[in-house]
Write a protein that binds this DNA or RNA. Structure first.
Lengths: 106, 106
DNA sequence: GTGTAATACATCGTAACACGAGGTATCGTT
DNA sequence: AACGATACCTCGTGTTACGATGTATTACAC
């Protein structure tokens, strides 16, 4: 899938992945894989970005000797998803423009 | 509208704008305006990119003392639009993932 | 006749961002 | 002991949208 097309949706995707219940990096990638693939470097960049934007908060958890950082969505994060739904309506109208057929005979 | 979200669709939008009939820069911006806004610098960058990718060809036309560059879509350009439709299906499934409600009571 | 807006093109620098390459460390299985 | 899976992170690079800026002509108002 085209990288550019993914750009606008990746952030929201990650938020959606932690919406139901808190999750951590490695698991987020696995959960999202059937829908959209992203590399670890990309994910951690996004998580950092979302944290700075107060859309999620981080909690460190010791798990089997390894560190796990659990991410929890905030109200702003939930709002971001809602805003995205509105933006998507615009995207749909643009899609209509792109795929419109000007004449009946086509 | 979020810049990132526009990224994947701008190229295809420009192709769609010249699909029906050849057009030139200034007119493309005006035609697209109701659907999606983009600056001149962005458009000319995109047109150059699409030309290099053989998705359109350019024709210089003298018009009222001013130069006009008419852009004509190629077979590859049309194919790009068709490919986009397929990519859009993927985008729709991602959208479903983002907006899914996990429980009935919400 | 002089300013101003519209038309029409173009370039340059910047900031955002996705990703590959690479790094560190632990645990379980072979 | 070796290796894959788990789990985190950083750095450099290429793509890209945009604002700022520049050039030049036409048309119209004052």
């Amino acid at each position: 899938m085209d990288i550019q097309l993914k750009r606008g949706i990746l952030d929201v995707c990650v938020l959606a992945a932690i919406k139901k219940e808190d999750s951590y990096g490695y698991k987020i990638i696995k959960d999202m894989k059937p829908y959209i693939e992203l590399s670890e470097s990309t994910l951690y960049t996004i998580l950092k970005r979302l944290e700075v934007a107060n859309m999620l908060i981080v909690r460190n958890v010791e798990h089997g000797g390894r560190l796990r950082k659990y991410y929890h969505i905030t109200g702003e994060g939930l709002k971001r998803i809602e805003d995205f739904k509105e933006e998507w309506k615009e995207m749909m109208s643009i899609y209509q423009y792109v795929t419109r057929e000007d004449d009946a005979n086509e």
